[in-house]
């Protein structure tokens, strides 16, 4: 049996129930996330992605259904909900707007401090995590408000990572960054997942990003879970994804076009690197024949 860390069972959340403004943001979502995977959540604006992740750390409580962390209902003991938030670290969209301390050091230490860790432990974590996100010693005493946009974003993400959560959830971590900033943040998240071996969930609009870094993809459509599976599995439903108004990665489209034309591309590909390999292999085959 797979090792499940986070699971939702028939999770439903309705805003303003029994009024004219009633909206069901997520409906009957059941999904089991394996320990140590990097999951990409994709879906349209308003498909329920953000609502779903707010359930993961108990910021919201489902109208019905449960969220299980390590097999235990997170709402089993209401008073324990804060400790759930340390185990499932959620980093919201534009996290730089939550910075408030005088120095970068203090801001990153906010989470660990709330956990009640010792001074030495906090110090170790802050230094470790800041060097991990590529900010040198000299940043420690700077005001977070003096940094550039990309640096602020990294400080904010570091603030969540410093809690060393079992599950790290990031909502659109690349939103509003330039291409270099995006690449930095993405590789940072990938590295984090590899070095710590923790579970990472990342909400994104970009199919390319999801295809590039995720092990598994979760697709939300109109408040429901549409697909959950490996990248190949999910992107094999290209037609359905497109009918949901979601794009598929460019290289995936190229693959489908080549197949349509009857060209012998063997393996599915969805990143540029894979595409290069597959097409070159294809040419080689042609030469040999």
């Amino acid at each position: 049996m797979a090792d499940i860390i986070l699971e939702t069972k028939n999770l439903t959340y309705t805003y303003a129930p029994k009024t004219a403004g009633e909206v069901t943001a997520i409906r009957d979502v059941s999904v089991a996330i394996e320990r140590g995977t990097l999951v990409g959540i994709i879906g349209h604006t308003g498909s329920g992605k953000s609502t779903l992740i707010e359930h993961f750390n108990g910021l919201m409580r489902g109208t019905s259904g449960v969220v299980l962390l390590d097999g235990k209902d997170i709402w089993e003991n209401k008073k324990e909900i804060r400790s759930v938030r340390f185990r499932v670290g959620v980093c919201f969209q534009y996290p730089e707007y939550q910075l408030f301390e005088e120095t970068v050091y203090k801001d990153v230490a906010f989470g660990p401090k709330n956990m009640g860790l010792s001074e030495e432990e906090i110090d170790r974590r802050v230094r470790e995590v800041l060097s991990f996100v590529g900010l040198e010693e000299r940043y420690l005493e700077l005001s977070p408000f003096d940094l550039s946009g990309g640096e602020k974003r990294r400080v904010a993400i570091a603030g969540i990572m410093a809690m060393e959560p079992q599950v790290l959830v990031l909502d659109e971590p690349c939103a509003g960054l330039d291409p270099i900033g995006r690449a930095t943040v993405l590789s940072l998240i990938q590295n984090y997942q590899k070095t710590t071996g923790s579970t990472v969930i990342i909400v994104t609009h970009s199919m390319e990003d999801a295809a590039l870094i995720a092990d598994r993809i979760l697709v939300m459509n109109q408040a429901r879970l549409a697909f959950y599976g490996t990248v190949e599995e999910v992107f094999s439903h290209a037609g359905e994804l497109q009918s949901m108004g979601l794009d598929i990665p460019q290289m995936m489209r190229l693959y489908l076009l080549l197949r349509e034309k009857g060209l012998p591309v063997s393996k599915t590909f969805y990143t540029l690197e894979q595409a290069k390999k597959a097409i070159l292999a294809c040419f080689k085959k042609g030469e040999n024949a």
Partner: peptide, 13 residues
């Protein structure tokens, strides 16, 4: 509301 949620996610009480 947004900021409160973000700080709660960092364990603010």
């Amino acid at each position: 509301e947004r900021i409160t949620n973000a700080q709660k996610a960092r364990g603010a009480d």
